[in-house]
Design a binder for these strands. Structure first.
Lengths: 248, 248
DNA sequence: GCTATGTTGTGATATTTCTCACAGAATAAC
DNA sequence: GTTATTCTGTGAGAAATATCACAACATAGC
């Protein structure tokens, strides 16, 4: 039989998987015990719960061990990526439809969409979708398909066909490798059909990446340099189409 | 050019991807500014940073206030729903493909899928997808489309067409109203085409809901009682179709 | 130079959270 | 039944965090 305490631990565990954070006060109300008891439950289960200034959070280790999350945690270019997105956001205009590629880089772009712009955003990454879902005054279209944990994105023919029904004003593409002669490459082949279809449909295409990607070449080629209006890094924007300029 | 503040945001962003949480005091020391300034930086970037009792955390870790999340937080039937899913999970068999409907009820089912079963799971709810993404040894297929914040799910023709490419062994459907004469109804019309298509394709359909849904009738009708093998509530399983017997 | 605008630091005060000891309640053992 | 043990709630003081107004500083434009 489950003891009172075990029942509480289980309930609290459930609450934490539903919401990532539960306040001590809420937890006490939810479990029908005093705050002191919740404190003790949490303190006695350091492998299960973490504690942060009045709030209960999942223990550091268990929250997520998906490959994509691990990659993000080890990312040392987060600042540069954010900065690149800051420059990219200049191309977002009210009432338009934008496409946001998958990958850690463009996740930062979501927060930079002004709340009063009534944007329609298209994505195919689970993480980007989560962020878009939290934005107010924004319509989201997601391309579904089979899930790929390595990039937290989806692929498949129906998702790509969805694009035929959409008008894309601005597309923000990301790449793991950017070679000035060869063009843009990524790691995962399943992303290629989506990227290529988007590039062919969108009015304006921008390649967004931190400068550590410059000069690199990855397995999956998806577009030549001329496919993009410009390359946007943390240092700003560089034209790629038309009159080519050198990249620092 | 990057302003002082932007530089700080970027540095803080980097620090947060290296470590999950950074204390206000550490952040102030790291950035070489006062705690008050860090507070302001964090408060002015709610999409980027979260704030939890003196600690700065990545925004993803913060609870959202989307309508769907609020509904879940206020849910008084969580225990019954979990119990119903416990019964439903008996119908999950190794190496098969299951469909998981949207709604709070069936989110609990995800945690009950055994890790060694190599299941393929189909879903069209963002919350269910997040949970499925955290499971190991599981393939996920998501039906995309236009996002509906009210139910955190997607709708659209391409998503429904995806179903034609899939073989579904077991489908778990949820309903907001179950009338023994009329059948199953839900609140949001956009869910109806998905549900109906799934019911027509799956080998076994189960209706999963807590008993508070019994006798209720909602706006969007999607299936008569005979469409399901059985109704599964927190009290167990009740045959609805064929010559099955009631299972307490 | 000057002003206008925005940013940052300080300190006082209010609020919240933390710790601890002890008493009362529940449970298990006998 | 009794005793022993564990669990739980309360309250008070200590510590930490939050909020606010205002002054000091920086920056851009003129």
């Amino acid at each position: 039989m489950a003891s009172r305490r075990e029942t509480r631990i289980a309930t609290l565990s459930d609450a934490l998987s539903a919401r990532r954070v539960v306040h001590l006060r809420e937890a006490a109300a939810l479990l029908g015990v005093s705050e002191m008891t919740v404190r003790r439950d949490v303190a006695d289960n350091p492998g299960l719960f973490g504690y942060l200034g009045g709030h209960i959070v999942p223990a550091a280790g268990i929250e997520s061990d998906a490959p994509y999350e691990l990659a993000r945690a080890a990312d040392s270019h987060a600042g540069a990526k954010r900065q690149a997105c800051f420059h990219a956001a200049r191309h977002i205009r009210p009432d338009e439809t934008i496409f946001i590629d998958c990958g850690t880089t463009l996740e930062y772009l979501v927060e930079l969409i002004p709340d009063d712009y009534a944007i329609t955003a298209i994505c195919y990454s689970l993480n980007t979708a989560e962020r878009l879902a939290r934005k107010a005054n924004l319509r989201m279209v997601m391309l579904g398909g089979v899930y790929h944990p390595s990039s937290a994105s989806f692929s498949g023919a129906p998702g790509i066909e969805t694009l035929d029904q959409l008008g894309i004003n601005v597309a923000f593409l990301s790449a793991a490798g950017i070679d000035l002669a060869r063009g843009a490459t990524c790691v995962h082949f399943h992303e290629v059909p989506v990227k290529q279809k988007v590039i062919s449909l969108a009015r304006e295409n921008y390649l967004v990446a931190d400068s550590s990607k410059l000069g690199k070449l990855k397995a999956a080629f998806f577009a030549p340099p001329g496919a993009f209006r410009s390359l946007i890094t943390e240092d700003g924007e560089t034209a790629l189409a038309g009159d080519l300029m050198s990249v620092p």
